[in-house]
Design a protein around this nucleic acid. Sequence first.
DNA 1: TGCGCTGGACGTACAATGTAAGTGTACGGC
DNA 2: GCCGTACACTTACATTGTACGTCCAGCGCA
Lengths: 230, 230
Amino acid sequence: MAIATDTGTEARAPLNRERVLRAAVDLADREGIGSLSMRKIGQELGVEAMSLYNHVANKEEILDGIVDLVVSEIDPPLEGVHWKVAIRHRILAAREMLVRHPWASAVIVTRVNITPTMMGYMETTCGILRGGGFSVDLTHHAIHVFGSRIFGFVQELYDDSEALAESPEIARMMLEQMSTHYPYLTEVATQISHDGPLVGVGCDTQFEFEFGLDLILDGFERMLAAQSPA
Amino acid sequence: MAIATDTGTEARAPLNRERVLRAAVDLADREGIGSLSMRKIGQELGVEAMSLYNHVANKEEILDGIVDLVVSEIDPPLEGVHWKVAIRHRILAAREMLVRHPWASAVIVTRVNITPTMMGYMETTCGILRGGGFSVDLTHHAIHVFGSRIFGFVQELYDDSEALAESPEIARMMLEQMSTHYPYLTEVATQISHDGPLVGVGCDTQFEFEFGLDLILDGFERMLAAQSPA
DNA sequence: TGCGCTGGACGTACAATGTAAGTGTACGGC
DNA sequence: GCCGTACACTTACATTGTACGTCCAGCGCA
């Protein structure tokens, strides 16, 4: 049976992480995230399920990867316009991506590690706000409100507070690295603590929730007053 | 082997839908929604997995059921207070439930059929707004904004437009039944269409999204102006 | 040319999942 | 006593992620 099996026929394109992730996105788009299995992805690529493990560690990494892929599809920000225009454009662009990939929200909310591309998205969003005159605090609140409007939540940047507390020198290195790649994000992340710059301290999610809620309620109150001027 | 197996020992409490759902909620609270399996629920009740199927149709029905259970835990609305106070209380109460049951949001967003209790929650929320002077349209927009703030989305009330279109007499009956149980909700659901009362027509989710977005952006703009009066 | 190492595809196997289908039994009404 | 109904149990199957071992092509090097 092994006579000149494939020689002469076009050799299939070599597998790699990129192709695996693209196949996964295509499959999720076509058949829904529920039927995204290793075997199906393999089938999509003409390969056995186990071959995928030479390029990704496990299924979680595939989910991380496809989130990263689709987030990178979001249109780049507008330059040199008023912050309100830029933010509106940016959020609607994110929404377009989510409509294009209906499974994405569900996967995003299950991620525990925030992906680099998502960090980039948040970074430029922070940049727009700071450039528009937002204080660091207000930028932080805004990120929460926008994030929960778009994705239904805001991921904690760092959940490993105790790990960082155990090795402060590593924490310091990470902080420096982060501040060169994501200066605005770092600024926001380190100033959210009311008593000094800290990393990994987490923020008061209850406060952020109520902040957004009151913003909305005030908005409706004003609309109501405008509509029926007693 | 079958000699007086259980006679004499206390007979275990009879299984029923209620007990199954409660066990499922307890398990999800303790071990997370990921490890909520039919076998584990059975184990929790001292029963085999397949026995559960005498009381629930399948796992989806269990998920529907536990959502219904936890939504019914939400504190009842405040009576006789300003709409803003009532709505604030109501939304924070919903959030408390979601914090108590961290798995709930994830399950809620996957439900396709809205449960009766959730309908009830929305109904009283509509009632508060209408009583506070909100127009039907504004109530509709508000439901979307609040819904997406709390649960991360708003479920379509009816997704079976074509089924209803095929049998208008059934649609009429359902509409009547609904309007007796959920008058405010019916009012909102039937008036959202710009050309006459229709059921199952769905609403313009893009418009609703932008409505909420602009509400938020306007809020921040005002805050910014207040903070730095140029 | 021959040899061995290594990357990567494959095959097998296992545990966990939801659930279809069939079996057994206790009990209440005749 | 008999029988139907309700309900728990048993077995079985397809599907999932993935651990582990095999096998082969291609490459560096003698």
